[in-house]
């Protein structure tokens, strides 16, 4: 009986060891991009956070991540925090060198945010609803030049690339992801100016359905001048007329009424 039990334990342990050894490595790359754009002013600085994670259910290897510009408007300055660093790693006894902005280890989904959070780790609910991802943050800083064209929307794109070590073969794999932003540049102070006046022909507006478009005025935010269109609405004109009639009546009739009351 004991011999049978020991054999069973031995076989079980051996199977577990073989399974652990045979489990194919998995390369995972998780990213979270909270922002897709912003509105800003010439001469300002924007910051976009990007988060990186590996759910250990999907990834077994650490990802070494570089973040580089893919599309940047002319004269705009882009930097990444943490900056690119040279690293030397011992991968299963083999020393390799490389560069990375940050590296991300596989971590489990947590059922709740821990009371004591780990430095540099952000706990973000997974869209799966199964728990909290443990992510690291990088910040993309964008400096907009003073002469950036006002009113224009610029495309900015960054690429995050995950490299993995420890594999050998004819074809190795990396993963990458694009982070695209649309940045609209506006004047520092709000202003409004009517460039084209609506058509003045009120009757045409009332009778011609297609003339509705004429009512809209083209407005551009380019100068600090405000030109008021003025005028009263129909309701306001009616009230003014009523008030005027009442006032006239008051001036002409009320003294007599007051006087008769006195008497």
């Amino acid at each position: 009986m004991d011999r049978f039990f020991l054999s069973f334990v031995f076989i079980t342990l051996l199977s577990a060891a073989v399974f652990a050894q045979e489990a194919a490595p998995k390369l995972s790359f998780g990213t979270i991009q909270p922002d897709r754009g912003a509105t800003t002013y010439p001469g300002s600085t924007l910051k976009f956070d990007v988060y990186f994670f590996i759910d250990e259910a999907y990834g077994t290897r650490a990802a070494h991540i570089t973040i580089s510009p893919a599309l940047v408007p002319q004269d705009w300055l882009v930097s990444v925090d943490p900056p690119l660093n040279d690293v030397t790693l011992n991968i299963s006894g083999v020393v390799v060198s490389g560069s990375e902005n940050l590296n991300v280890d596989p971590r489990p989904l947590l059922s709740a945010v821990p009371e004591t959070s780990e430095s540099g780790i952000y706990y973000i609910a997974s869209p799966s609803g199964k728990g909290y991802l443990q992510a690291k943050k990088a910040t993309i800083q964008v400096e907009i030049p003073d002469n950036a064209e006002i009113g224009k929307t610029f495309d900015l794109s960054m690429t995050g690339t995950a490299k993995y070590y420890g594999s050998a073969g004819a074809v190795l794999f990396t993963q990458s992801r694009g982070f695209s932003y649309q940045i609209t540049v506006i004047a520092p102070t709000y202003s409004e100016q009517v460039i084209t006046q609506p058509a003045a022909n009120e009757s045409a507006l009332n009778t011609t359905e297609g003339s509705e478009g004429n009512k809209s005025s083209s407005v551009t935010v380019s100068q600090n001048t405000v030109i008021s269109q003025g005028g009263f609405s129909t309701e306001q004109v009616l009230i003014i007329v009523v008030v005027a009639v009442v006032a006239v009546l008051a001036v002409t009739k009320l003294p007599g009424m007051m006087g008769s009351g006195k008497n």
Partner: peptide, 18 residues
Amino acid sequence: AEVAQFIEVQVTPPSINF
């Protein structure tokens, strides 16, 4: 309301040997 974009992609195996 902008909902953040989450993408996680798994690639396995990590290499091919012909």
